[in-house]
Simulated assay, not measured.
Amino acid sequence: MTAIRSKRNLLSIKQLSNEQIYHLIHLAEKLKDPVNRPSFSGQFAANLFLEPSTRTKTSFHIAEKRLGFDVVELDGIDSSLTKGESLYDTLKTLESLGVGLAVVRQSEVDGLSTCTEGVDIPLINAGDGCGEHPTQSLLDLYTIYEHFQSFKGLHVCIAGDLKHSRVARSNAYALRQLGATVSFVSKPEWQDPTMAQNYITMDEAVETCDVLMLLRIQHERHTGHEETGSYLEQYGLTVEREARMMKHSIILHPAPVNRGVEIDESLVECEKSKIFRQMTNGVTMRMAIIHALMKGEL
């Protein structure tokens, strides 16, 4: 991985210490109250999304607006990237035009790291292919902390399409660093030996985990068609399995959710599910990340 030269960028969860993660969690909690939010009125934030997104893109947009930014929205169609311009030159152009912060989603793993030396505005990785998704990880951590007030001693199981999941990669690293035990459930062909060795069955997971983090099957990153007809019964969260979870356990999912595939439709909004709470927390955590980067706190 290319060295991250600027502390004003958030490219990987691996660049954050436990102290910095806790700082962001506490800052997010503080920023829930509009009275505590600083104003970046008169400054511009650019969201450059070169892959489809609903939650992350909208979440950043709302977070930026709540902090007072004017927001510039770009995608792969309306930018000069379609004419062969490099990502670096696009970001350098945005900086030259007066943008003070850029959020980027793109398909190249670690693609933003090549831009950090010459681009002097804060850059945020909003997902890089099958690489990392640090802001999703941070909102997931915030949601877990909100419920348990700690990470040490928790058993978190990440279940699903691990091979193609940037969310799993970021969360597995951060949770272990914070003192949680992390195990995994996955079809053999979707397992990733660079991320995990301790695989268990979904039946074992539901009876032992404090947090069950489900993942979407990422058909767009597969080379062939995946049959999902029996996936729920073999690897997903059924009603019967949810009934065997511990009373205090919670269910997470980064979404979008394939209802009836990785989770039974009736469980998406069940009492244990924090799926929509994650989305709410995503706006608050992204405000905290932007605030911390703009103020030089990371």
Score class of each variant (00 low, 15 high):
Gln278Asn: 11
Ala45Gly: 12
Asn47His: 07
His133Thr: 05
Met245Cys: 05
Ala126Pro: 01
Cys115Met: 09
Lys152Gly: 03
Asn281Cys: 05
Val268Gly: 08
Tyr235Trp: 15
Gln197Met: 08
Arg216Asn: 09
Ser150Pro: 00
Ala288Gly: 03
Asp78His: 14
Ala159Asn: 07
Gln197Ala: 14
Asn125Val: 06
Ile25Val: 10
Leu178Asp: 03
Gly236Ser: 03
Arg221Trp: 11
Arg169Lys: 15
Ser39His: 04
Lys30His: 06
Leu138Ser: 06
Ile275Ala: 14
Ala63Tyr: 04
His155Lys: 15
Arg176Ile: 04
Lys32Asn: 06
Ser266Ala: 11
Ile200Phe: 02
Tyr88Trp: 11
Glu269Ser: 11
Thr135Trp: 04
Leu175Ala: 08
Ser165His: 03
His164Asp: 09
Leu67Thr: 07
Met294Cys: 05
Gln278Phe: 00
Ile25Pro: 01
Leu48His: 08
Gln15Arg: 07
Asp89Met: 09
Gly42Ser: 13
Ser79Arg: 03
Gly76Lys: 13
Ser59Glu: 13
Cys115Tyr: 06
Pro134Lys: 07
Asp70Pro: 00
Ile290Pro: 03
Leu101Trp: 06
Thr90Phe: 00
Gly100Glu: 15
Glu227Gly: 00
Gln218Val: 05
Trp190Ile: 00
Thr238Ala: 05
Gln191Asn: 07
Leu293Tyr: 03
Phe148Ile: 04
His23Phe: 15
Glu262Asp: 10
Val206His: 01
Ala126Phe: 06
Phe44Arg: 07
Gly260Trp: 03
Ser165Ala: 12
Arg166Cys: 12
Ile13Leu: 05
Ser165Gln: 11
His133Pro: 02
Glu85Pro: 01
Ala243Asp: 07
Gln234Trp: 03
His147Asn: 09
Leu175Glu: 12
Asp210Met: 12
Glu226Val: 04
Leu91His: 10
Cys157Trp: 06
Asn281Met: 09
Ser41Tyr: 09
Gln20Thr: 06
Leu237Met: 09
Glu132Thr: 11
Asn258Glu: 10
Ile21Cys: 10
Ile77Pro: 00
Asn9Asp: 15
Leu50Gly: 04
His147Glu: 15
Arg259Gly: 03
Ile263Asn: 12
Glu269Val: 04
Leu94Met: 11
Ser107Arg: 13
